[in-house]
Amino acid sequence: MPVRPDVRFPSIEGLRAFEAAARLGTFERAADELSVTASAVSKRVAAVEELVGALLFSRSGKTLVPTPAGREYLEQVRAALGLLAAMPLHRRAVQRMTRLRVCAPPTFARQILVPALDGFVAEHPDVELEIVLSVPYLDAASADVDVEIRHGGPQHHGGDVLIRDVLLPMAAPALLAQTGPLTRPADLQRLRLLRTPLEPWTQWFAAAGLDWPEPARGARLVDLGLLLEAAVCGQGVALGRPSLARQWLRSGALVALFDVAPPSRTHYFLAPQPASLSETARDVRAAFENWLRAVCAGVEREAAELVSGAP
Rank of each mutant, 00 (worst) to 15 (best):
V145M: 03
G180N: 09
P106M: 04
A287Q: 05
L162V: 04
D223S: 08
T280E: 07
V222D: 15
A171V: 01
I131H: 04
V237S: 00
I12L: 11
T37G: 10
T67C: 02
Q111D: 01
D283V: 08
T179S: 06
A261M: 09
S278C: 03
R220W: 05
E148L: 11
G218D: 02
P274M: 05
S134G: 04
S60K: 13
P274F: 02
I163L: 13
L182P: 02
A93F: 09
G53K: 13
V65M: 07
L51C: 15
L81S: 05
E289L: 08
L228Y: 12
A286W: 14
S278H: 05
Q247V: 14
L117Q: 06
R96H: 03
F9M: 07
A116F: 13
A172N: 00
R250H: 03
F288M: 07
A20V: 15
V237M: 02
C296T: 06
V255G: 08
L81T: 15
V232F: 00
V102D: 10
V299A: 01
G25N: 02
V127H: 09
V161I: 14
G240M: 01
D126H: 09
D187Y: 02
R44T: 06
V161N: 03
A281I: 11
S35E: 14
T196H: 03
L117Y: 11
R195Y: 00
L224M: 12
